[in-house]
Design a protein around this nucleic acid. Structure first.
Lengths: 339, 339
DNA sequence: CTGAAAGCGCTTACAG
DNA sequence: CTGAAAGCGCTTACAG
């Protein structure tokens, strides 16, 4: 009765009940309460009931941090991505999160704005909150990052970018290879002089690799390069420049569908017909790309399946202690009517 | 010397050093090490140096979970959102995450697919991993959710939706009010018969409220309603239906810019001119909406500033123990050339 | 300026 | 089937 009062008193004082409180009220040991809580065998039904109702009465819920300290697990994975405000990363993270949840893992997201220093800083925060593994984008790292990882001995996995030159496993694309697929298509369609519009290369090895793939192709008589922020407006602006240049190219290869959409808007405004006067090739296969006028030829990067693969490997590593397997993912050419 | 060996031994065995190891190697007490670790005053420089180098030698980094158990803080906030794969939520979360990081708070994201049961389940996971507060979208909750919250006594904040009828504070929009702004604009432009294309209403009170606002407006001679998934393709399909209906409306109000884009693509294919034959009004002001042909009239919901406000209130609540203030956010009419 | 001791709220051998 | 005790790795009064 006195014990019971203790429980109620705590409740009134707005202090959370502990496992010990439950044990007292139920008249059993902490060990037994713990067993009930974790569905362990060897508890009689009678005692189980007593414990359950004590839990009910006290409105008890176990402390996650105490549990984590004992089990050594937080079931948390940290992802360092450049931004959330981008359809491709959002789609990747959406799939990743769902699959991690399926594996009983939580996802903490941290954005880096493609800045290695911010990435290290946020990595520290993620580790300080108990992340059991880290997901990063691309291969470029701040030196402090590697030191942080070796100190904390935590699994790291590179995404969006496939490489075998990194100390960390990677699940992603061979970006150079993939832009060659697009180039082959343009070449087959008879294009000889093309313009390339790409996003910022600073700290962005995915974009650099795509460009490298293009530069290695020597079949074209002329290729001009135009860097632009990944936005519709910048795509429009780049298009304006390109159609004014002498020796106007017969095709524009945009290293992002967002850029391609801007180009299409701009050409439509100038009444330049696609693909007759200028062909347009995108990269990403965003959801609207099939519906533009004309529908956009592009490259599908199955980032959703990348998310699933990453989650599955993390599950293997964290929950079954198997090493992470690197995986090179394929890009797929999607031919529609803009080329 | 023996102590020193212990440290190195652990390192070789790949076991993480603990604070006690550092204390042993440095020849000081745990208390002192803790003081150094947390930049507390009253430690002589000589000892500070000894401790620092012991930390270096052992590659020590403190256990986040042990810290959390002692301080009672995890510095983690959980967000339950319908999906990440949607420009509006992604933009909101991007701003939210950056601002939370600024306040030294981590963001765990969990997607619910607009399903209250999934939401409860994921809320449990978030609490089990130590979330100190929860962010939810809209007012609709599963009953178990409220029970979970009262049990765990954790702050909850409703976003995207402003309400004063909830037990939880809210920072969001009065969606009914905002669709009236759009309607006023269409009415002023002389439209009398309009079609409304909206997303699924199931479990989605934001959409329902927007529709309620429209239904309360009695000035129009005819309003037809068309439910569609939030996708370009569905926007196209809805547009096909609408232009075929007898008594074709003079304006289409899309409760999402994504839908509006689909409609515009479809009308462009059918050579129906915007806004002369049919005016189009959107909702969201996505990044490309200023660049469509013609540029899309729409409503700006400043979800980025919503993210900042939510983070700021959470900071006040969690770090300064002040109650969360509900806030009604304004939508802003953006008139371009599609109306 | 420094340390011994208790404690945060659980889990887990171990013993019966 | 049940419990006493130790321990996870820190922090925090308290005492000196």
């Amino acid at each position: 009765m006195l014990d019971n009062l203790m429980g109620i008193e705590k409740q009134n004082k707005n202090i959370k009940a502990t496992l010990r409180d439950v044990a007292r009220v139920a008249g059993v040991s902490s060990t037994t309460v713990s067993r009930v809580l974790n569905d362990k065998p060897n508890v009689s039904d009678a005692i189980k009931d007593k414990v359950q109702s004590a839990i009910e009465n006290l409105g008890y819920s176990p402390s996650p941090t105490a549990r984590a300290l004992n089990t050594g697990r937080t079931y948390t994975v940290g992802a360092l991505v450049p931004t959330l405000d981008n359809a491709i990363f959002a789609r990747f993270l959406d799939a990743l999160e769902k699959r991690l949840t399926f594996h009983n893992l939580n996802l903490v997201i941290s954005t880096t704005d493609e800045d290695p220093k911010t990435e290290v800083q946020n990595a520290i925060d993620l580790l300080n909150m108990g992340a059991e593994a880290l997901i990063v984008s691309g291969e470029i790292r701040h030196p402090d990052f590697d030191q942080l990882i070796s100190r904390n001995r935590i699994p790291v996995i590179i995404t969006s970018y496939f490489t075998s030159n990194s100390p960390y496993p990677s699940i992603g694309y061979n970006n150079a290879q993939i832009s060659k697929i697009a180039l082959n298509h343009l070449f087959d369609r008879g294009h000889n002089s093309i313009a390339v519009i790409h996003g910022p290369t600073k700290h962005n090895d995915r974009t650099r690799e795509r460009l490298k793939g293009i530069q290695e192709d020597k079949r074209f008589s002329s290729i001009t390069y135009h860097e632009a922020d990944i936005s519709i407006g910048s795509g429009c602006a780049a298009a304006r420049l390109i159609i004014r240049q002498k020796g106007r190219p017969s095709a524009i290869f945009c290293l992002s569908d967002v850029l391609a959409l801007g180009v299409m808007f701009e050409l439509s405004r100038k009444s330049i017909s696609i693909p007759d006067e200028i062909a347009i090739m995108g990269f990403d296969n965003l959801s609207w790309s099939a519906h533009t006028n004309p529908p956009l030829s592009t490259i599908e990067l199955s980032v959703a399946s990348m998310g699933i693969k990453v989650a599955d490997e993390l599950n293997q590593r964290l929950n079954k202690n198997k090493p992470i397997q690197s995986q090179a993912l394929e890009g797929q050419l999607i031919i529609r009517h803009s080329t």
